[in-house]
Design a protein around this nucleic acid. Structure first.
Length: 135
DNA sequence: TGTGAGCGA
């Protein structure tokens, strides 16, 4: 009565068992999507309004933790906001609270997203932190 | 012009 599911196995799965090459899609491999970075005091905030400034970020994120520094990325030529910024907290726990307290929330009329910033190598002092594309 | 999903000079 019951043993009929095995016989009625999906034809699609038949190939997987007949194939000698067991190559399942690795989950730990590089994913096309953007994986969340590891916990850090540096937060990456996106979805900011063009009118949002670093002060707005600092005040908005300071309500969930001690913000050491907040900065909105702006264009050097035009000076306009790029629509995202960075917020650095005093500790990792404050950063986590800031993410859970501001991620998916409204700021300046726009829904913003807060997450850990990607690990980035520091600038070399020998180059005085000058951009590689600046002769 | 800065109505876009983006990681900083």
């Amino acid at each position: 009565m019951a043993m009929r599911a095995a016989a009625a196995a999906p034809r699609s799965l038949r190939r997987l068992f007949s194939t000698s090459t067991f190559i399942p899609p690795p989950i730990t491999a590089a994913t096309p999507a953007t994986p969340p970075a590891e916990p850090s005091t540096n937060l990456f905030v996106s979805g900011l309004s063009k009118r949002t400034t670093s002060e707005g970020l600092h005040e908005a994120f300071s309500k969930f933790g001690q913000v050491v520094n907040a900065r909105v990325v702006t264009d050097r030529v035009s000076g306009y906001s790029k629509g995202f910024g960075f917020v650095r907290y005093a500790s990792l726990e404050d950063a986590a609270e800031g993410i859970k307290g501001m991620d998916g929330k409204f700021l300046d009329g726009w829904v913003i997203f807060a997450e850990y910033a990607r690990p980035r190598p520091p600038l070399s002092p020998q180059n005085n932190g000058a951009p590689p594309y600046g002769r």
